[in-house]
Design a protein around this nucleic acid. Sequence first.
DNA 1: CGTTGTGATACCTGGCGGGTATCACGAGGT
DNA 2: ACCTCGTGATACCCGCCAGGTATCACAACG
Lengths: 294, 294
Amino acid sequence: MCMDDLETRELRYFVAVAEELHFGRAAQRLGIAQPPLSRAIRQLERRLSVQLLDRDRRGVALTGAGGVLLREARVSLDAVAAAARRTRRAADLQRPLVLVTKSGASHELLQRLLASSAADTDTAPVEVVPCEVGEQARFLRSGRADVALMHRPVDDLAGFDTEDLCTEGQVALLPSGHPLAARPQLTLADVGNVPDLPIARWPRLDGSYPDGPGPEVHTQSQLAQLVALGKTLLVIPASSRAWQWPDHVAVPVVDAPDITTVLAWPAGHHSSALAALARAAAGLRTTPPAAPTR
Amino acid sequence: MCMDDLETRELRYFVAVAEELHFGRAAQRLGIAQPPLSRAIRQLERRLSVQLLDRDRRGVALTGAGGVLLREARVSLDAVAAAARRTRRAADLQRPLVLVTKSGASHELLQRLLASSAADTDTAPVEVVPCEVGEQARFLRSGRADVALMHRPVDDLAGFDTEDLCTEGQVALLPSGHPLAARPQLTLADVGNVPDLPIARWPRLDGSYPDGPGPEVHTQSQLAQLVALGKTLLVIPASSRAWQWPDHVAVPVVDAPDITTVLAWPAGHHSSALAALARAAAGLRTTPPAAPTR
DNA sequence: CGTTGTGATACCTGGCGGGTATCACGAGGT
DNA sequence: ACCTCGTGATACCCGCCAGGTATCACAACG
């Protein structure tokens, strides 16, 4: 009621419009008619005394403040959704622990973790959910998962507590007939500029793509297809080779940064089931431990 | 509309009831009547299919799931409030940067930081807001502040990016007449069990107090009073001594962990004004004056 | 026993969220 | 020029639900 405190409905509406940049489609996506949506957004702008969208008769554009609200609203909606999910799960006594991981990554490590967890009698069952690259953080933030396998330094670990699992070098994945495939090892300089095998470009956090010659991809399966066709070059942690293609060889890239696979969960969330899994993870660690991150 | 996605109104209502543990008072605090509040909470419980409160005719108690929702709801409401505040501020061109700090702490350092920032022509003006101990995180999370002075390892820095400013040892603050005041240095063992000067107990994150003989305090001014009266013993970073009382002496505690004062801001928030302040802060660190470490 | 204080129930009302119909207007086609 | 198409904005109506008042049911005290 007050000028402050927005309702999640308003935020959902705004996010829909900001993402579609089109009132009609946004309304359709929300399952309502367009006029109430227009009204709701105007009301939101009046509430905040801020212009969020530039409407110029032919389409809609975000203002600076609109961009800020879009980012903040997504975070807020994730938090609210997480509140609902976590509350439900807290009431469910024998809920499994949901672990989210990049689909296909760290297979062997995950197997060991699950085995170790299952051997420990007082751990809850673990349910593994795969997701697209870089989506683990949102799964955790929105409460769809309790814990994730992530990778330092590639993933954004801000706001999470972590337990290191293992550290490994990276390899380049090449078609076996390619000239570079015969080399015993490679450097980043070698793989960074191979005319016939440009490195694929992933979307940044804001959804835009970095410049470069490689193809734009945003799902694992797209990438898998490109690699299988020999259209792109991949530099990945050595263990991800479990994700294997025929007619490809893996060559170590000696100067690529080491990748540490970590178990990550929202900071400050201490359920007993999670603690048990973290203990199991700590026990797994083959290489001597580093101090727990803070 | 759907079973999922709660509205912030429901969360505000629930938090009020969960904090007051009393429908009448909660309703009064919310400025509504009691019956609609009862109904809203029941509706919330039905939506989630979870019992949040145990009502037993004489008062109300949180269930386990209720406790989870209380914590999550506070986070969510902070996030929504932050969305509104940050959006408004994004539209305000010459907004000052709001810096929140424990009232009274790090005076000298703060002076230098402000001076350094003011000297840099392209930094926005900085507005300093004091807060109670441990409240900085909520100020940042709820968007009431852009940046904070916090202390590692005492404050919870999860979810924040930080820039270290300075590190220093801790001192015990004692009435000058006390036997321990004559000692050139102390250890934690010395100060941990002084019968006539028990250490004050601060509330934990969940609001409960640790056990012990000392008085329970929750504001700086309460503490100041107790110290001034010679009723409690304080172990604080050396620089906080700027916060001085008559007839007290500071004695170094040699085995207390060093405290690092850091500039902290929500992870992933990159405004140019904030970046300028962080740069100023980094510049400060490289030119330490006579900062006596221990 | 009444008294007091708790949350729950019953019932009414107004506001607002949502719908339909329509307008205003710019961009392109012929 | 004209018309058409697609855009978001406006006008108006309706039904639901948030919120109010009055009251109940019951437990803990004297």
